[in-house]
């Protein structure tokens, strides 16, 4: 990633995310209240976060790959089932993944 690309991503993301926030304060009440829009919008974070889990965990460029990250994610899943707090989930995943990475 070039420095220019990084700045473009940063600036565009910031401007667009802020505009979306501001939109909620300026559109007349009811505009965004359409039931279909509400239902879809409630599911968008679920779909995107799910896709991000697998895209970050099992993909290199455009290939599906199972590597050390799988071990980390398995531990993260176990930690979530055990109702452990978020930092524990992330750190235990990182440590497990690093361990497997070094063993290989």
């Amino acid at each position: 990633m070039s420095s220019t690309t990084a700045w473009i991503v940063l600036a565009s993301t910031s401007v667009l995310c802020f505009s979306v926030k501001l939109l909620g304060y300026y559109v007349p009440q009811g505009w965004l209240a359409h039931p279909r829009l509400q239902r879809v919008n409630a599911l968008v974070p679920i779909s995107l976060l799910s896709a991000l889990v697998v895209a970050e965990g099992f993909v290199i460029k455009t290939h599906v790959v199972l590597d050390h990250r799988l071990a980390g994610l398995a531990v993260a899943l176990a930690a979530l089932f055990a109702k452990l707090p978020f930092p524990v989930v992330v750190v235990s995943a990182a440590l497990t993944s690093a361990l497997v990475y070094h063993l290989h």
Partner: peptide, 20 residues
């Protein structure tokens, strides 16, 4: 990768997804 940061990111997404 040496510190497991590449697994920390998807784990963070999983952690954000889980309570939803």
């Amino acid at each position: 990768a040496s510190w497991g940061l590449d697994a920390a990111v998807p784990a963070a997404f999983l952690g954000l997804l889980w309570p939803r």
